[in-house]
Design a protein around this nucleic acid. Structure first.
Length: 137
DNA sequence: TTTCTCACA
DNA sequence: TGTGAGTA
């Protein structure tokens, strides 16, 4: 009756094996262990076997999203800390706010850089198309 | 199946 | 930033 797994309101569907998560996210179990070795996720253990909870699953989702966006694992690690912040004290919340603001500034600056790069490339594309038209007519 | 470690790209 | 192989 799944006694081992039961905290009161915790159901089996909230627990995942490494193979299940690897399968769900189309990554290898080695990759998940690698992220654990970097401290990005901290699954529980039953004996030596890893048991992943909803929280780990969410973190994995955020890690993969961060990677898609081109962030390094250490940047992603910093980012995940924001989700973990202990906000029981006003000073902690203030600290979180400062870090979120700083992160937002960075991302907005990067976004601006990207928009400039996109415009430059679009201009080059336009120029190349015009040249091509001249050269082929 | 899962774990860990070392070597390797 | 991962993967492969050998191991228990």
């Amino acid at each position: 009756m799944d006694r081992i797994l039961e905290k009161p309101a915790e159901k089996k569907q909230d627990l995942f094996s490494i193979a299940e998560l690897a399968d769900e996210f189309s990554i290898s179990t080695r990759t998940i262990r690698f992220y654990e070795s970097k401290g990005l996720i901290i699954p529980d253990r039953v004996g030596t076997t890893r048991v992943f909870r909803r929280r780990d699953r969410t973190r994995l989702l955020l890690i993969l999203r961060g990677k898609r966006l081109g962030f390094s694992l250490s940047e992603i690690s910093d980012y995940l800390e924001l989700y973990d912040a202990d906000n029981t004290q006003a000073t902690q919340t203030q600290h979180l706010l400062e870090r979120v603001n700083s992160r937002l500034s960075m991302l907005r600056a990067q976004k601006e850089d990207l928009e400039i790069a996109v415009k430059e490339l679009e201009a080059m594309q336009e120029y190349a198309l015009q040249q091509l038209e001249k050269q082929t007519s």
